[in-house]
C-alpha cells in the first residue's frame, strides 16, 4: 500500500528506496536461522575453547582461573607429546596415500561407460557405511591368529603378526582403514576435476605424439592443480583434526597398544570426558586449532591459494 502512495508523490526514487530496504530485511531474515545456529554452535565454542584453556574446571562446573597452567602442563606432559607425534605420523602417512590412491582410482575409472560406473560405485561403497561398523569389521578381520587378515598374513609367511596388538603396526592398520573408507570419496573429487579438463588438450597432445605418461605429466597434473589443492587441504585438515580417526580408533584400539594410536583428539577426549579435565582438554584443542590454521596458511602460501579463480 505504502508503495502506491509513494509512487504517486515521488515515482522512481522513493519506491526504489523502500524496495531496497525490503530486500535488505528479507536477506537478513533468510540468513538469520543458519547464521544464529552457526554462531551458537560453532562460533561460540571456538571462542570458548580459547577461554576455557585458561581455567580449571571441577566436576561441579566451577571455574577457576589458572592462567597458563594448562599450557605449562602440556609442555611437561609426555602423553601430549606422544599424541602430537602420533597425530603427525597419521597425517603424514594418510594424506599422500589418499592423494595417490584417490587420483589413481579416478584415472583407472575415468572413461565414462557402464562398466566403470559400476566399478566407481564399488570403490565408493565403503564411504556410506558408518565408521563404527567399518572399525568393527576390520577389527574382526584383524583378530590375532584366527581373523581372516591374520590368516592371510600367515599364508604369506608372516605368522604370529598381531596387527592391532603390535605398537609398530596398530597405527598402520588405522591408516589403512581410513584409506579404505576415504579413497572412494577422493576418487570422486578427482573425477570432478578431471571432467573439467578440456578434451581438446589431450587431442592436441596426441596429435603431437605425446604418450599417456607425458599427457598425464604435462596436461592432467598441471590442470588438476585446483582440485589437488582442495584434496590436500581437506584431507590434511580431516587427518589432523581426527574427523575419521576418532571413530575408528575409539572402536578399534581405544588409543592402544602402548598409546601407539592415541592421536590428539583421542587424548583430548579422554582428558575431558574420562577425567573431567575440561580446561586442559580445551587448551590442547586450541593448540590443535592453531596447528590447523598454520598448516592451511602454509599450504595457501605454497600453492598461491590454489588459484581458486581459475577452477
Amino acid at each position: 500500500m505504502t508503495d502506491q502512495v509513494a509512487q504517486i508523490s515521488y515515482p522512481s526514487e522513493e519506491r526504489g528506496l523502500s524496495t531496497k530496504h525490503r530486500e535488505w530485511l528479507a536477506g537478513y531474515l533468510f540468513v538469520l536461522p543458519d547464521a544464529l545456529g552457526l554462531f551458537i554452535f560453532l562460533g561460540v565454542p571456538m571462542v570458548l575453547s580459547l577461554v576455557i584453556g585458561f581455567f580449571e574446571v571441577d566436576g561441579f562446573g566451577g571455574y577457576r582461573f589458572v592462567g597458563l597452567a594448562n599450557y605449562q602442563r602440556m609442555m611437561r606432559d609426555p602423553l601430549f607429546w606422544q599424541a602430537a607425534r602420533v597425530t603427525a605420523l597419521y597425517a603424514i602417512l594418510l594424506v599422500p596415500l589418499l592423494f595417490v590412491c584417490g587420483l589413481g582410482l579416478a584415472l583407472l575409472v575415468q572413461k565414462s561407460n557402464r562398466f566403470n560406473s559400476v566399478i566407481r560405485s564399488m570403490f565408493f561403497a565403503p564411504h556410506v557405511v558408518s565408521l563404527v561398523v567399518v572399525a568393527l569389521v576390520w577389527q574382526l578381520m584383524s583378530v590375532d591368529k584366527i581373523g581372516i587378515l591374520s590368516r592371510l598374513m600367515s599364508a604369506l609367511g608372516l605368522p604370529g603378526v598381531s596387527l592391532l596388538g603390535d605398537p609398530n603396526l596398530a597405527l598402520l592398520a588405522v591408516v589403512a582403514v581410513s584409506l579404505w573408507f576415504l579413497m572412494g570419496y577422493y576418487m570422486l573429487i578427482f573425477l570432478g576435476g578431471l571432467q573439467d579438463i578440456p578434451v581438446q588438450y589431450y587431442e592436441a597432445a596426441e596429435i603431437d605424439g605425446a604418450g599417456p605418461v607425458q599427457r598425464f605429466w604435462y596436461i592432467t597434473l598441471p590442470l588438476l592443480k585446483p582440485t589437488s589443492f582442495f584434496v590436500l587441504m581437506i584431507s590434511m585438515v580431516a587427518a589432523v583434526a581426527g574427523a575419521q580417526a576418532f571413530d575408528i580408533i575409539y572402536v578399534m584400539t581405544k588409543g592402544g597398544p602402548a598409546n601407539s594410536t592415541a592421536v590428539l583428539i583421542i587424548y583430548i577426549y579422554q582428558q575431558a570426558f574420562g577425567f573431567g579435565a575440561f580446561g586442559y582438554a580445551a587448551a590442547m584443542a586450541s593448540i590443535l586449532v592453531a596447528a590447523l590454521v598454520l598448516m592451511t596458511a602454509i599450504l595457501f602460501l605454497f600453492t598461491r591459494g590454489g588459484r581458486f579463480e581459475h577452477a
Binding site: 554452535f41 583434526a241 590454521v293
Partner: peptide, 15 residues
Amino acid sequence: LVSLPVIIVPLFIVV
C-alpha cells in the same frame, strides 16, 4: 575448516 572433534569440549559445555 572447523570440524566437530576440535570443538567437542566447548560445544558440550554450550549444549
